[in-house]
Design a protein around this nucleic acid. Structure first.
Length: 855
RNA sequence: GCCCCGGUGGCGAAAUUGGUAGACGCACAGGACUUAAAAUCCUGGGCUACGGUCAAACGGGCGUGCCAGUUCAAGUCUGGCCCGGGGCACCA
């Protein structure tokens, strides 16, 4: 056999790895655990096993982490590289409902398909650690950990105006609603008061923000998190209402503008609106309230530019100006659940207040002047110098803020305050497919946590698990599950809500450390060895929700002494989305890919010949532009697909999939195969382990050695930023460099090449390793040591330039002194420059000589 | 509107601290092998209404979105602008 047959090699090795458990990762305490090795935990964001399976986009991230895991093994680490299923949650349930099956069944079928696909990619997971968040042996510990949050007082029940999605028949978290529509399915959502379980994530807001500094994460992700947390420093100020004992509390970051206040504005939902409305204004206010509540939340957000509001008839006293009365308004630009739901309106220095004042013809009182420059802007929103502000006039904005706040504190009319955009996390869902809460109610309505001995609270089997019309949870229909008698003999009723899909993923990375522990979520032993995730790779889609929630839970565990680190994911890397081409016609209607043909660079609809426009978008079933890795593996091979996905570009770049580059990688692996085989298809004798060794390198062997170290240098460098495209390029270059010299190649040189190839293309490397008489596994071979001298070579091309423009090149010994370089360059340039015209010479050793001449 | 990231050949892309722009591939063109094709191998290439020449070799000029600046030297640094992608969006 001589031809490179990817499929048979890959099948052989995948079966071997499976039965041999080559990539099994031992824990401290296990028989084969090597405690002398340091740990490395590299994790993919585990998938929700969808019905459509993996596409080539998922594969690129998984291949990337696999390359890193394999390299780390060769660097002598114990590598934890696991995979599992994020199986609970809305998408799984929606899919089950659509296909008329039970989610338990679809989840299993889909997971089987995913596992099969992942194995076809040759990924070196320890499959013994596979987990499924929807199995009782897993969610028992989700419930157990939830009770830790409960014990810490971080769980409460509250009647809150929550996002309700009529189509999904459930409550959604703030993070799950985008512009008034559900993130999943894009259905309209409305605000609705419902009693819900809520987690006090706001108690951790400050730490979630400041601990971002500890993390090696991409800046844009950190920024998205800090924007979401939305910390702002300011003050709360009380405005005493005229003829009343009420004080309206407002929040402002611009206390320095307080002397410019011309109105106090409440959100329409503010609880005091009714009380503050005078008889004369009653109709106006009622009309306005009707008008705003009729607007759906979505409309309110869409009409950002339009401002509206009305007068309540009441007045409040300015806290710092004696006897000055300020009118009280209501307006829907003020948000009820941010800050205090009320603001002091300073039209001269705030954009929205300005528009509001223009609309209602309120006066402008400028109290801040730009520092230095004269400006005639009516609404100046930046910091400056105070004017017209009694004793504070002349102060800079920042100084004025602290001085005025102190004055207000002394008068007991205000205080420093930090406000967050982050809200507490609405944690219950009125759906079936999730973890039941380990909480019950006794006859007087007290909350009774389920004792550990009675965990898990098993999700009851239901034939019809569709959401209820009235918004109550489907579990409420399982009466004999809801009502039960506790071991202590009390008759109790269970909470019928389930946890959101995020619950399982809040701690799965910890379970992977000790996945079969029946006594605890993870052992002290395991967590103190693995500590935290060293490298976490996934798409940017989870930048806010999953990553914020998991950090929150982890911090609670840290406070409970369950984990040794304050953060779960040390380094985060965002793999770029692999997109695909799609087509639309002149009316903007989508045209499925298989109806389109390329006629000399113009895309046309096959049936009509009409020109269509190509654009780039996510892969989706409906556009028929999903590319499945299985197909490429069948037609080309897994190693070829792996090499190509990496060769397409840096791992964090977004890129559209095309087949165009596949032939290049196919040739690359064929050439690799042929490197180890002679023309008759026999394995080359000089590369066998038993080949005789000569003491000195021939000239060719020396060149092969230099080419190898040049290649190794680039491959090593690609592990810094995961731009593995340059690794593949370096391999190809190596093959070009040594072509014609392969008869001379030594066994050790062949071995080294296979070693550094193996993380990228593990099957062909394993096969050639075996064929060259090695009976161990290449996967645990030591990664070769770089010899920088060899990598750079003994000579270089000296560039000689004139006024910065390269003119000549000279092969030169590396390490030559500046004076030698200058002399050589001068001699070489004698036909172009005479020495007396040179006004300056710049010499960069091992690089170039530049002569500057007068023009 | 605000914030972040990016813009390099026909295409995907590469390029330490500023120091040979276009590595490595794809596609393309020419050649070798072949009855032929596939496969394989070799060769070529940024652009140029410049000089040169029958043609070429060769030489010049211009080139990393645009304009300016710093520098002996700019894809890389600085300022302004244009385009594309992403995030946030009445958060007081």
């Amino acid at each position: 056999m001589s031809q490179y047959n990817a499929q048979s090699i890959e099948k052989k090795w995948q079966e071997k790895w499976d039965t041999e458990k080559t990539y099994k990762c031992n824990n401290p305490g296990d028989k084969n655990f090597d405690s002398s090795k340091p740990s490395y935990y590299v994790l993919d964001m585990f998938p929700y096993p969808s019905g459509s399976g993996l596409h080539v986009g998922h594969a690129s991230g998984y291949v990337g982490t696999d390359i890193i895991a394999r390299k780390k093994r060769m660097d002598g680490f114990n590598v934890l590289h696991p995979m599992g299923w994020d199986a609970f949650g809305l998408p799984a349930e929606q899919y089950a409902i659509q296909t008329g099956q039970h989610p338990r069944v679809t989840t299993e079928v889909n997971a089987n398909n995913f596992r099969k696909q992942l194995k076809l990619l040759g990924l070196s997971y320890d499959w013994d650690r596979e987990i499924d968040t929807s199995l009782p042996e897993y969610y028992k510990w989700t419930q157990w950990l939830f009770l830790k949050l409960y014990e810490k007082g971080l769980v409460y029940q509250k009647e809150v105006a929550v996002w309700w999605c009529e189509d999904l028949k459930t409550v959604l978290a703030n993070e799950e609603v985008i512009n008034g529509r559900s993130e999943r399915g894009n259905y309209p959502c409305v605000r609705r008061p419902l009693k819900q379980w809520v987690l006090k994530i706001t108690e951790y807001a400050d730490r979630l923000l400041s601990d971002l500094d500890l993390l090696d994460w991409p800046d844009h992700i950190k920024k998205m998190q800090s924007d979401w947390i939305g910390r702002s420093e300011g003050a709360e100020i009380d405005f005493v209402v005229e003829n009343s004992d009420k004080k309206i509390r407002v929040f402002s970051t611009r206390v320095d503008t307080i002397f410019g206040v011309t109105a106090v504005v409440l959100a329409p939902e503010h609880p005091w609106v009714k009380d503050l409305t005078t008889e004369a204004q009653k109709t106006d206010v009622q009309n306005y309230l009707n008008q705003t509540s009729a607007k759906s939340e979505r409309d309110r957000q869409a009409e950002v530019k339009e401002i509206s509001g009305t007068f309540t008839g009441s007045y409040a006293y300015h806290p710092l100006i004696a006897n000055k009365k300020i009118p009280i308004y209501i307006a829907d630009y003020v948000i009820a659940d941010y800050g205090t739901g009320a603001v002091m309106s300073v039209p001269a220095h705030d954009e929205r207040d300005y528009r509001f004042a223009k609309l209602l013809e309120l006066p402008l009182i400028p109290v801040i002047k730009p520092d230095g420059i004269i400006s005639d802007i009516e609404c100046f929103t930046e910091d400056g110098v105070l004017v017209n502000s009694e004793i504070f006039s002349g102060l800079k904005s920042s100084d004025a803020r602290s001085k005025i706040t102190t004055t207000l504190e002394n008068k007991k009319l205000g205080s420093k305050k930090i406000t967050y955009k982050l809200k507490d996390w609405v944690f219950s869902r009125q759906r079936y497919w999730g973890e039941p809460f380990p909480l019950s109610f006794d006859e007087s309505g007290n909350i009774i946590p389920t004792p550990e001995s009675e965990l898990p609270v098993v999700l009851p089997e239901m034939k019809d698990f569709t959401p209820s019309e009235d918004g109550s949870s489907p579990l409420a229909r399982v009466q004999d599950w809801v009502k039960y008698t506790s071991k202590a003999g009390k008759s109790l009723e269970r909470s019928t809500d389930t946890m959101p899909g995020w619950a399982g993923s809040c701690w799965y990375y910890l379970r992977f450390m000790d996945p079969h522990n029946a006594k605890e979520p993870f052992s002290k032993n395991a967590i103190s060895y693995w500590k935290q995730v060293d490298l976490y790779v996934g798409g940017t889609a989870h930048a806010v929700m999953h990553l914020l929630y998991a950090r929150f839970w982890h911090k609670v565990f840290f406070d409970c002494n369950l984990v040794p680190t304050p953060e779960p994911f040390k380094k985060l890397f965002n793999q770029g989305l692999v997109t695909a081409f799609a087509f639309k016609d002149s009316t903007g209607r989508l045209v499925v890919s298989d109806e389109v043909e390329n006629v000399e660079g113009v895309y046309k609809r096959k049936s009509t010949g009409e020109t269509v426009e190509r654009f780039i978008t996510k892969m989706s079933k409906s556009l028929k532009n999903v590319v499945n890795p299985d197909d490429i593996i069948t037609s080309h091979g897994c190693d070829i697909l792996r090499a190509y996905e990496m060769f397409m570009g840096p791992l964090d770049d977004e890129k559209p999939w095309t087949d165009d580059g596949l032939p290049g990688c196919t040739r690359f692996l064929k050439r690799t195969w042929n490197l180890f085989h002679d023309d008759s298809g026999e394995i080359r004798k000089n590369l066998l382990r038993s080949a005789s060794v000569t003491s000195d390198f021939t000239a060719d062997q020396q060149q092969i050695e230099e080419a190898f170290h040049k290649c190794l240098k680039r491959v090593n460098e690609s592990f810094v930023n995961f731009n593995f495209n340059t690794s593949i390029a370096a391999f190809m270059e190596y093959l070009n460099d040594i072509s014609g010299k392969v008869d001379q190649m030594t066994t050790a040189q062949g071995e080294n090449f296979l070693r550094i190839l193996s993380p990228f293309c593990p099957h062909i490397a394993a096969e050639l390793w075996e064929k060259t008489q090695h009976n161990n596994r290449i996967d645990f071979e030591k990664w070769p040591e770089l010899d920088l001298k060899l990598a750079e070579g003994s000579t270089f091309e000296l560039v000689i330039s004139l006024n910065g423009k390269p003119k000549k090149r000279l092969k030169t010994q590396r390490g030559s002194s500046s004076s030698i370089l200058e002399a050589k360059a001068l001699e070489a340039m004698s036909d172009l420059v005479s020495k007396d015209k040179i006004i300056k010479t710049v010499v960069v050793p091992d690089k170039l000589v530049n002569f500057v001449v007068k023009s």
